[in-house]
Nucleic acid binder design. Structure first.
Lengths: 340, 340
DNA sequence: GTGAAAGCGCTAACAC
DNA sequence: GTGTTAGCGCTTTCAC
């Protein structure tokens, strides 16, 4: 073996030499630029293949000033909603040709979202997605790339911020109306943590539905998305007279609520109806099968990413508004008319 | 506004100028190199802060040949196990100071894992993590960085491949033995897709437990991790005489199985015991609360990442073997002795 | 259609 | 302790 022999990775000059063209031509081929003859293109590709050449992304980023990657601020949780959304973002990003850098906000980290954004900016990204945002106070970071906020009301604003909503508000409203339509006098709500915009949205939707029907607004229970917190709320609700309908802000809490009701001797849906939110895979297989709301994570991610890429690639143009995505109420067996 | 005025991002020379030092000194400060006087360090930091300076990661990567990022090949699914593992990886990576690039293998993509790895290599990573690997055939990519395979037997091998196991084999064995210990003559198994190494491991553990006790090995049902597939298996099992104990390869399928049994008029656990795998959050709140196996995702990710970083930073040294992480059998109410 | 030269913003190796 | 000099491997600009 010659010293340093075959270990060094080939560079575009090596490909150029082998193909008998200039280095610039290799660059043209790898960037799909026009004005390269079919013959030259083929020769370059062949040489590259033979050498095992890969474009050096760092050099490309340095020279062009663009990283071709998007940063995601995710939540460090395996909750069905956030996890599904992250997958949708990954898929959508790949389709647009952007790579993904992911940072999670840590529970209890004082720097929160701002720290995550700062870290992404350090890494170098052309745009940022804030997925399932939580209200973390102001974000004191100078952000010089477009930001997409997925699923939040426009409270998170700025010069280059794009907001899309997952229509959680409408969905919560529809879920609540479903219960009202069945004849329930009012609907109790087990909310998520109020720092999450998703929780606020659902709370507001629930409230709006009650107000539109002049239904009394009972006190809200605030859970933490866990079945455990749903269970705790359910135990209290079971002791509260007149509770016939409950809307939980996610399926896990709904399942906890149902268990607590059942343990207290109440039947679901004969005595109390329960609606969840998310349509987790097991929702159809718990007892009773859960009426819930299905969110179009993939479509939301795809629409949002398209807008973000637009903002990245055409900074001068105005970003079109998000259309929003339709949602489904999935009626199963956990809801029924109130007891006579 | 002066044209092009304040929009350009500051570079390290700008900081150097402002602080009255050389550009190299700025570099030293930002890389925590020794031999910088406290006074100079402070001045540089102040100047940087004033200008809003950030190190340009692309330039750094180009000059140093290291990207300080790790690529993850994830599965494009919100399944609890894979999602939890991904979060664990993100957390562990952040603690080691590496950034994360994520690519998912797409269902039905012919390039599969190889394509994902290739994409990461294009993006530029110092190491690769293959999380929850599936058997995707050979990987015909020349990989010049260390690779960590999380949770697979060493079938995925190569010069710089590190294997760690989540001890799924042992866990499956313990789960099966739990049922045998309760007095069941044998245990039926609802497996995951056999392309997943995780499924194979669990299947092998189950089989080993049966063989060690000379229990008959009933035919295996292969599901796809979904409650739906568990439900289908459960319907068949309900019709099969002599079924008193079932081990499902994940909780979702276990929940589907339980529902099918219940629909067929069988009681869990009085007539049939069911064990799941994962300990999803709702496991304690379904009916009956599910006996299952809890996996130490965070510890597994942390151990694996530590080994990977070791391999990245000390290429010459031998990577120590993975110790493996302890696991828990969580006994709840879905298991009991067989009917008399 | 293709090529030559310049430079992106850093780190590496060495000098002082 | 600090500064100087060369690149890292591309893209950009402009010439032909």
């Amino acid at each position: 073996m010659s010293p340093g022999g075959s270990s060094a990775l080939p560079r575009s000059v090596d490909v150029a030499k082998l193909a008998g063209v200039s280095q610039k031509t290799v660059s043209r081929v790898f960037n799909d630029e026009p004005y390269v003859s079919a013959d030259v293109r083929r020769r370059v590709l062949e040489a590259a293949d033979q050498l095992g050449y890969r474009l050096n992304n760092a050099a490309r980023a340095l020279a062009s000033g663009r990283t071709r990657s998007i940063g995601v601020v995710a939540l460090g949780t395996a909750l069905y909603g956030p996890a599904s959304l992250l997958i949708g973002i990954e898929r959508a990003a790949r389709d647009t040709g952007y790579a993904l850098r992911v940072v999670s906000t840590v529970e209890g980290d004082p720097t929160g979202v701002a720290g995550a954004i700062s870290s992404l900016l350090d890494q170098g990204v052309d745009g940022i997605v804030i997925s399932e945002p939580i209200d973390d106070g102001p974000v004191p970071v100078k952000i010089d790339v477009p930001v997409l906020v997925l699923g939040a009301p426009p409270s998170f604003s700025g010069p280059r911020v794009i907001n899309t909503s997952v229509h959680a508000y409408d969905m919560a409203r529809i879920a609540t109306e479903h219960l009202l339509d069945l004849g329930h006098a009012t609907v109790h709500h087990v909310a998520g943590p109020q720092r999450w915009f998703a929780s606020k949205d659902r709370l507001d939707g629930w409230r709006a539905a009650l107000q539109a029907r002049n239904a009394a607004e009972p006190p809200v229970f605030e859970g933490d998305w866990s079945p455990d917190s749903g269970h705790a709320a359910g135990r209290q609700l079971a002791r509260t007279p007149g509770v016939t309908a409950i809307f939980a802000a996610n399926d896990d809490m709904a399942i906890g609520v149902i268990r607590a009701l059942t343990e207290s001797g109440l039947r679901v849906p004969e005595d109390v109806s329960v609606v969840g939110f998310d349509d987790v895979p097991v929702a159809a297989y718990v007892t009773p099968p859960l009426t819930t709301v299905r969110q179009p994570f993939d479509a939301v991610a795809r629409e949002g990413l398209a807008l973000l890429v637009h903002a990245i690639e055409k900074p001068a143009e105005v970003v079109p508004a998000a259309v929003g995505q339709p949602v489904d109420l999935v009626v199963r067996a956990s809801t029924a008319p109130p007891p006579a």
